[in-house]
Design a protein around this nucleic acid. Structure first.
Length: 272
DNA sequence: AATCGTTCCTGATAGC
DNA sequence: TGCTATCAGGAACGAT
């Protein structure tokens, strides 16, 4: 599932390739992924629009455009579980295709069609963006801020890390990996973490996200980067999807439980 | 505020 | 072997 490192990789791949390009055609084969406005309007607004840049906020991709009418527009893409945004030759499996002025095609692929595409005047007004928590890798977000926020919460730490209004961009894989690296049990209440545990978790969230970005993401199921290639962080998983396999640290079998409705992998021996 | 269930969706797979 | 029920989960939403 695309989380911050995967979405960041896509953003970095696509940005230099779409800058200044004009959208010459939009084809839609699965209209339900287009959430706003209607499909006709969606196509009309994007036709002959010019791409300025693409950026990321949390797990959301945002393409900044100048419309044919000279207005500022934003195409937002949330990949959810199986979404892919890939530039290259036309892809017959795509749900939505954006044909570009240089002959390349930006394809939105999505096996399960849970993703969401929008064209909006102001991306900051989207529900998913309003109230979104801090970017874990931004310089303005400090270990002290993180510790203070944890202190005020009585909810379990692992579901809290998945809460996008608490911190942006972390999903099921990196929450599990960061907690293992920090030796913190996923069911611990956030406000029971000591200062040193909070600080350790903060640092490890950053290091795991940075390392995953270096690896161009985790292709656990069907994630692909902006050029259609797999990421390699999957081979660095310590707990995620490793139920029954020996812990890399103590050899105890990795366990799986459900927390907040999500599969949660952990080592009962190492994580306290 | 925290927690739970429901919805969306389709391919992989566990279990009979 | 072959079928079917279950599972995977990001996020919004409503109920408790």
């Amino acid at each position: 599932m695309p989380e911050l490192p995967e979405v960041e990789t896509i953003k970095r791949d696509l940005d230099p390739l779409i800058r200044g390009k004009t959208i010459t055609a939009v084809t839609v084969s699965r209209s339900t992924v287009i959430k706003e406005p209607g499909v006709r309007q969606f196509k009309r607004l994007l036709l002959n629009a010019r791409c300025r840049r693409i950026f990321r906020r949390g797990k959301l991709l945002v393409v900044e455009l100048d419309s044919a009418a000279g207005r500022e527009l934003f195409l937002t893409v949330h990949l959810k579980m199986t979404g892919q945004l890939v530039i290259g030759p036309a892809d017959p499996k795509s749900r939505v295709s954006f044909h570009l002025s240089d002959g390349m095609v930006l394809s939105y692929n999505d096996q399960r069609a849970l993703g969401e595409l929008r064209v909006v005047k102001d991306w900051r007004l989207l529900n998913v963006v309003r109230g979104m928590g801090p970017e874990p890798l931004s310089a303005g977000f400090t270990a002290e801020m993180f510790a203070r926020e944890l202190h005020g919460r009585s909810t379990k730490i692992k579901p809290l890390l998945l809460d996008q209004t608490f911190i942006a961009g972390i999903g099921n894989i990196y929450a599990a990996e960061a907690l293992f690296l920090s030796k913190i049990a996923p069911q611990r209440k956030a406000n029971t973490l000591s200062q040193s545990e909070s600080k350790r978790l903060f640092k490890n969230i950053r290091s795991i996200l940075e390392k995953a970005i270096q690896c161009r993401g985790s292709s656990f199921n069907n994630y692909r980067d902006g050029l259609g290639k797999k990421g390699t962080f999957t081979r660095h998983f310590t707990v995620y999807s490793r139920k029954g396999e020996p812990c890399v640290c103590c050899k105890e079998p990795i366990r799986k439980m459900t927390l907040g409705g999500r599969g949660t992998y952990f080592c009962a021996q190492c994580q306290k």
